[in-house]
């Protein structure tokens, strides 16, 4: 679980999740950009996009919105494509704090293996920025079980 207080009212924070025009302005680490193939913000709708790292690496992403309760909660499944077996469900809860808003992110993994896989993937994304990320990949390849 991660949380952060954002300097803005809840309705604006919620709005920042609802449109790819907004999401593309902030989704992902510093210096990352996104290219969107499809976007539909409704339960069952999909955001199909690629993240581009500053070193030119590309990461396919597939998000299916599962539940949308405006303006307090969004539940989505996040993987690399529609059939990704390691896709995991996250819940974003927006808590009204007047002029500010607390964002709480909870991600649920079906197994430790799935969680490790996801962490490995995010570590790879960070590797797009940090040389040590490549070392982690090397270590994982060297000591990890071969699939």
């Amino acid at each position: 679980m991660l949380s952060r207080t954002i300097d803005g009212p809840r309705r604006l924070v919620f709005e920042a999740f609802t449109d790819v025009r907004h999401l593309s302005q902030w989704w992902g680490p510093d210096a990352f950009t996104t290219t969107t193939r499809a976007f539909e913000f409704r339960p069952g709708g999909v955001w199909d996009f690629t993240m581009h790292g500053p070193d030119g690496s590309n990461y396919r992403n597939w998000i299916e919105w599962l539940e949308i309760s405006s303006p307090e909660q969004i539940v989505y499944r996040h993987g690399s494509d529609a059939l990704d077996p390691t896709a995991f469900v996250s819940t974003v809860t927006l808590v009204d704090r007047g002029a500010r808003c607390e964002v709480i992110l909870r991600s649920v993994f079906n197994s430790k293996a799935q969680r490790d896989e996801v962490i490995e993937r995010y570590r790879a994304i960070e590797g797009g920025k940090q040389t040590l990320g490549r070392l982690a990949g090397y270590v994982a390849a060297m000591i990890g079980e071969r699939r």
């Binding site: 991660l2 952060r4 954002i6 300097d7 803005g8 604006l12 924070v13 920042a16 907004h22 302005q25 902030w26 989704w27 992902g28 510093d30 808003c101 964002v103």
Partner: peptide, 8 residues
């Protein structure tokens, strides 16, 4: 979240 904060 940093970027979201700036954007909001």
């Amino acid at each position: 979240f940093d970027r979201l904060n700036r954007y909001v």
